[in-house]
Design a protein around this nucleic acid. Sequence first.
DNA 1: ATTAAAGATGTAAGCGCTTGCAATTTTTTT
DNA 2: AAAAAAATTGCAAGCGCTTACATCTTTAAT
Lengths: 338, 338
Amino acid sequence: MHVSPSIPTLDDVANAAGVSTATVSRCLNEKQKVSPKTLAKVMEAVESLGYTPNFNARAMAAKQSHTIGAIIPTMENAIFARGLQAFQEKLLEKGYNLLVSSSAYQPKLEAQQIRELVARGADGLLLIGYERDEAVYEYLARRGIPTVLAWASIPDSEHASVGFDNRAAMRLLADKVIDMGHRQIAVISGILDGNDRAAERLAGIQDSWQAHGFHLNDLPIIQTPYETESGAAAFEQLVQADVKPTVIMCGNDVLAAGVISKARDLGFNVPDDISVTGFDDIELAKHVFPALTTVHVPHRQMGRVAAESLIDLIENRVEKVSHQLDISIEMRASLQRL
Amino acid sequence: MHVSPSIPTLDDVANAAGVSTATVSRCLNEKQKVSPKTLAKVMEAVESLGYTPNFNARAMAAKQSHTIGAIIPTMENAIFARGLQAFQEKLLEKGYNLLVSSSAYQPKLEAQQIRELVARGADGLLLIGYERDEAVYEYLARRGIPTVLAWASIPDSEHASVGFDNRAAMRLLADKVIDMGHRQIAVISGILDGNDRAAERLAGIQDSWQAHGFHLNDLPIIQTPYETESGAAAFEQLVQADVKPTVIMCGNDVLAAGVISKARDLGFNVPDDISVTGFDDIELAKHVFPALTTVHVPHRQMGRVAAESLIDLIENRVEKVSHQLDISIEMRASLQRL
DNA sequence: ATTAAAGATGTAAGCGCTTGCAATTTTTTT
DNA sequence: AAAAAAATTGCAAGCGCTTACATCTTTAAT
C-alpha cells in the first residue's frame, strides 16, 4: 500500500510541540514574542518533522510575499545578467526573493508578465526603461505596487528610477568619435519601437552629429534586433553604400561584436580600415579583437541601488527618488583616430 | 480622504455578474462546464473590474501552481542563458511559468533554494547536474516533486535527466587535439568540488591522455572559477612552467576567452604559438579572435526537451527517462595542428 | 406526457497560514 | 501579599480561491 507523501503543516508542528499554531507561527516570524523554552521546543519539532512553511498560505495570510518581481527584455544576452545578479544578491541579503521573467522585447508580453507577477503577490517590481503604455502605470498605481525603473533615468518623472542618461552617454561617445576626425559615421541601432534605451542612444548620436554642424540626412542608420547576427548583416549592408563609413557606432556591444566578426570575415581590418564602437561594456567587449571601445555602464551598482531603492519604497514608503549613475567612456582598440 | 486601492476578488466578480463564486471559477478554469450566456456575463464583469486571480489563493486551493522552478549555478555568464530561455519558452507554451534562482555554485545555497521553490509550490524542478547531497534527493522524493536534471546525463540513474555525456564529449575533443600532434597539454578546469560537469570534463581529457599512453603526472591541471579573469590568471601561471604547453584545454568557453585575451596581452600568437580549446560553444566562442575550437552543446534543444520531460513527469506521471543529446566538435581557428 | 439522463449552477468546506483579541501566566510594583 | 503591568499563549476569524456534492433546469428517451 502506498502512503502518499504527506507534507507536514503548521498544525503538525503545533501538535508535536504541544502548543497552538499561533505560537508556532510566532516562533517562525517573531521570535522575540515567545519564551525561550517554547522556542526551543517548537524548533525541535520543526527540525524533526522537516517542516517548511507553505509559501502561498503565508503570502495569502500575511498579505505580503517578500518577493520582488523583475521583468527583463531578454536573458539571452549578457546585457542584463550582471545587473540582475547584483540585484538578486542585494535582495537576498535583505530577506527578499527574486522572480525573473523575460518579455522578449514585447510590450504586450511585458504587460502580461506584470499582471502575472502582481497576481503572484510580488511586493514590488523592477522594470527596464520607462516607455510603456500609460495603462500599465495606472494598473500598478491602482494596485499600489512599488516599482523601480532601471537602465534608464528620468529625474523629472513621477516614477522611481535608477540608471543613467543613455542619450547623454551616447552623445559623449559620439563627440569623442567626431573629435577623433571621423566624418562618415554609420549607426546600427536596436529596434526603436518600444525600447526607449535604444531611442535615447540614437538621439545622443544625432545630438552630437547636429551640434557639429552636420545634417541628419547624412547619417545612415540601420535598425535591427540586438543580436550579433543582425549586427553582422547590418554591417554588410552599410559597407555597400557609396560613401563608406569610417566608423560604425552600434547601439550595444552585442551588435558591435557581430560587426567586428563580420568585418574580419569580409577582409576589413578593424580599426585601420574601419572603427567600431559599442555600448554597455559587457564582458564580451573586452574579449573581442580588437577590444571594443564602448560606454561603460555600472551594472552591478545599478542592480544594488535598484534593490535598495525598491526595498525602501516597500518598507518605508519613502518618496520616489531617481538615482542617476555615472557612466564612462571605455577607450579600447576598436576606435582609432582618423 | 484616501481610499486604499482595493483589489477585486472572485467575490466581487460573482456579485457583479450575479452568479456564485463557483461559477466564476469555472468560467476561468473550465469554460466547457458553463453555459455560453453566463460565460459572457462573467467575462464582462471580469473585464470591467479589471480582475486578476490571486495566484497564491489559487495555488493553495488547487494544490498545484503551474509553476516550474529552475536553479542554475549562475546567471552571470552565458552558459545557461540560452538553454534556460528555450526552457522558459516551451513552458509558457504549455501554460507553465518559470521561477529562476541562482545558487552561485554553492551546494548549500542550492539546497536552500530547492526548499524555497518547493515551499512556493513549484510543481516541478529543473536542476543542473547530478552531484548533490543524497538528503536533497530524499527530500524531493518525500515531497513527490518531479525533477529533471539537465546539462548532464546519467542513463543508468533513478533520476530523469536530459543532457549529454560531458566526459565522452571532452574525450572526443582531447582525442582530436592529440591526433593533431599535441603532446604538451595543459588543462584549466572549473572548480571540481560540487560540480560534476567540471569533473566529468576533466576526466574526459584524462581518459584520452591515458589511452594515448601518457602519464597523468605529465598533465598539468589548474582548477579555478569559471570566470575570464581566472582563465587569464591560470594561463599566466601555466606558461611559466618548464615545459611550455602547446595547447591549453579549458573547462569551458569563458575560461578559454580569458586565456585568449591574456595570451595576446603577453605577446603570444594564438594558435601559432599556442592553441586553445573551450567547451559549450556559447556565443562568445565565435566572436573571440581567433575563434574558439570548442564542444558544441545543443543548449536550446536541451532546454526544450527538459521542459517537455518535466511536464510529462508532472502531468502524466510517466516513467523517468533520460535523454542523451548529441554534441559535436566545433573546429575553429584557435586550435592548430602542431 | 412522464421519467430518466445530462447539464448548469449554487452551497460550503477546506487549502495552510497570520494576527487581533482575549485569556492566562509571570513579573513588577506598592 | 495584593494589585497592576507585562509577557506569553491560545482562540478563531479570515486571506481568495477550488471543488465535491447537492440542487435545480433543461433535454432526451420512453
